[in-house]
Amino acid sequence: MAIAFSSVCLMIVLAFSAMNGGASFVVGLLLALLPLGIWLPVILALDRMEPEPKNALILAFLWGAGVAALVSMVLNTLNFVVITDLLVSTDDGWYWTAVVGAPIVEEVLKAFLLFGMLWFRRHEINGLTDGIIYASMVGLGFAATENITYFIQAAEVDQLGFVFLMRAVIAPLLHPLCTAMTGIGVAVAAMSRPGMLRFTAPLIGLTGAIALHSLWNAASSRGIGGLASAYLIGLVVMIVLIVVVQRERRRLVGLILHYLPKYIPTGVVAMVDVQMLSSLKARKAAREWATSRGGRVSGTAMREYQQAATELAILHERAEHAAAEPAELENQRQALLWVMQRSRATFLPTAGTANLPWATTAH
């Protein structure tokens, strides 16, 4: 339902842009899609240890591209009219709309999806990386739709090259970087014990997103020097996020090494599997081996096994932090063990684990 609603909103935005842009709409649409071909794979590659469900990622992207973009178009226009009436000057109206009105409107609208996931799909947010990825998907969707409008307007005044350089080359990750602040806050809340932090962390993250967005818009409107400052700010934020993702990956490997060996006596995991699950290179080798041995079914089973085993390690951490009810955690644990047992029986029908090919690539 949410995906369908977001898709309808996106269609409305595209129809409105097509009616107003004419021939420039096609050019704007194609140029807006170009950055997605680069940055979507990059963002998705951040979460190779525990990939998020495709339907959740699609919803995040469509929410940003559809719902958030459509509503922000209306509210930003109203803000501009009100602010301009108060300030008289059109230039001042545009400036204060960009620095104050737009950051609040856009970041709040993008945050609704993340807050909704925190409420309805908390179990999908297992670390800071998950929050960053979902937030980045929302931001990429929003940026793509917004860029269409900017490119259409630029084409009408012969400034398309400059605007494309600014929005698609110099600052293609403005919205993902800003919304990632909210994503981190939501992830902190999802992993926290019941208490005030579950309420304050998302709000602090949202405040950070609004502040970063406002600072960027204010700095980039101050000429070359301001633009350089804005770009430097964005670069620093990106580096910080990359460090966070790398630390999260090491944390996840630590959880796998700590918790999964306890399940060796059950037969759903062997020590060689624990080693495989701790390395991206070994995981890939295992999937390739399973596919070559048993076709697509076996390869899919290996992928499901890796996913379930990783989530099992994360589940134990959530249990230690009391991030969910014990009965809920136990139900999830039993479900994950069932998936691991079923998948293992598919790609490894015999009991032996000696000389498995990924054992030599696990380090």
Rank of each mutant, 00 (worst) to 15 (best):
Q246R: 09
I256S: 04
A230R: 05
M276I: 15
A335E: 15
A327P: 05
V236I: 09
Q307K: 04
L315M: 14
M302V: 00
P261N: 10
N355S: 08
E248F: 01
N331Y: 02
Y305I: 00
D273Y: 06
L336V: 12
K262V: 01
M276V: 15
S298T: 12
A286N: 08
Q334F: 09
A309P: 04
G234Q: 04
H321M: 09
P265I: 06
R318A: 14
M271A: 01
I314S: 10
A290M: 04
L235W: 08
L252N: 09
I256R: 11
A285V: 15
A323M: 12
V269R: 00
V297L: 11
L241C: 09
L232N: 04
I239L: 11
R333G: 11
E248H: 01
A319W: 14
L235I: 08
G295A: 10
H316V: 12
M271N: 01
V297D: 14
L235D: 09
G267I: 01
R251L: 01
A335Y: 13
K284T: 12
L356E: 07
A282I: 13
L255I: 03
W358N: 03
S229V: 03
A228Y: 00
V240S: 10
P357L: 11
L329P: 07
T300S: 08
T300Y: 08
V237L: 13
A319P: 11
Y231C: 00
L241D: 05
T300I: 09
A359W: 04
S229W: 02
V297Y: 09
T350E: 15
A270R: 03
R283P: 08
L260G: 01
T300K: 09
Y263N: 00
F347M: 05
S229T: 03
T350G: 14
L232R: 05
I256G: 05
M276L: 13
Y305V: 03
L255E: 06
L227E: 07
Y231S: 01
R247V: 00
L315H: 09
T353N: 06
R283W: 04
R287Q: 08
D273S: 10
G299A: 06
A319E: 15
G254N: 15
I264F: 06
Y305E: 02
L336G: 05
P261Y: 07
H321P: 02
I314V: 12
A270D: 13
Q246H: 07
G299R: 02
A308R: 03
L312V: 12
P357K: 08
V272F: 04
T291D: 08
V268C: 03
E304C: 01
G299Y: 04
S229A: 02
P326S: 06
M271Y: 01
L312M: 14
L277M: 11
R287A: 05
L227F: 05
P261T: 09
V253E: 05
V240H: 07
R250Y: 13
L280F: 10
A322S: 15
V297S: 14
S298M: 11
M271H: 02
V244D: 11
E328Q: 14
E317T: 10
L227G: 06
P357M: 09
E328S: 14
A301C: 02
A301P: 02
L315C: 14
R249E: 02
A324K: 07
R333Q: 14
Q275M: 13
Q307V: 03
R250A: 15
I314F: 12
E311I: 01
T350V: 14
N331I: 04
S278W: 02
Q334D: 11
H321F: 08
A345I: 04
V244C: 10
S343F: 01
V274R: 02
L337E: 06
A282M: 13
